[in-house]
Amino acid sequence: MNLSVQLGGLTLKNPVMPASGCFGFGQEFSQFYDLNTLGAIVIKAATGEARFGNPTPRVAETSSGMLNAIGLQNPGVDQIIKQELPFLEQFDTPVIANVAGSSEEEYVIVAEKLSKASTVKALELNISCPNVKEGGIQFGTDPELAYQLTNKVKNVSSKPLFVKLSPNVTNIVSMAKAVEEAGADGLSMINTLTGMKIDLKTRKPLIANETGGLSGPAIKPIAIRMIHQVRQVSNIPIIGMGGITTSEDVLEFYWQGPTQ
């Protein structure tokens, strides 16, 4: 069976790829299976400088999911290009680089650098990290800011550009339309939903950052609903994610139109 898909100019062997932040930079999971079997690899967010992230605890288990507030910890875009990308060259699997920042300038610099790296075949613009004060969430909740940022990043990058949308909005369709008009080649949906868990022993939020992003099976119906809504108004490819754990989940997303 031919599972290959076209994704904003890229041809993938199959539509399955790990979501950003769940897969590090690939090394760890390469001990468990052959990364050549993946359709693509989406690496952890890159920012302009190294970030040390949030205090711990950073994760908490919840009903059918988990909260995380890692805080975009990463060694910075230059180190990622120098230290992390070379390992991924050996695989016949396209790498999609996740771009984060706290200002328009930072996003543009990171995107420009990553788009010049030969291993990187596409960019994913993360305007939806809910876990740092200045993690781009302002760009992910305001269609006008999202339009401007997407447009600026598109201008400095020759590689296909996917914009990762936040579900923490009242109108996902207007966000999708805005970034499509700005030139996005595709969408990634969805990032995590902001949540909180209280530790019954301390009576305080369990996660040090207090709030965290909810992921896992708990958010799958929301992801499906949002993708369905966006699909009615847009034809650009959608990388779908949010609680995919079984092949049935993959099919549910697949028949909804997206490409993961």
């Binding site: 932040g21 590090g24 760890e28 999971f29 992230g53 711990t56 950073r58 994760v59 995380n68 910890q73």
Partner: peptide, 16 residues
């Protein structure tokens, strides 16, 4: 000890 996500070094949950 720390709360962990992946256990293999990929998610940055357990840093010290």
């Amino acid at each position: 000890e720390e709360r962990m996500g992946c256990g293999v070094g990929a998610c940055f949950a357990c840093v010290c």
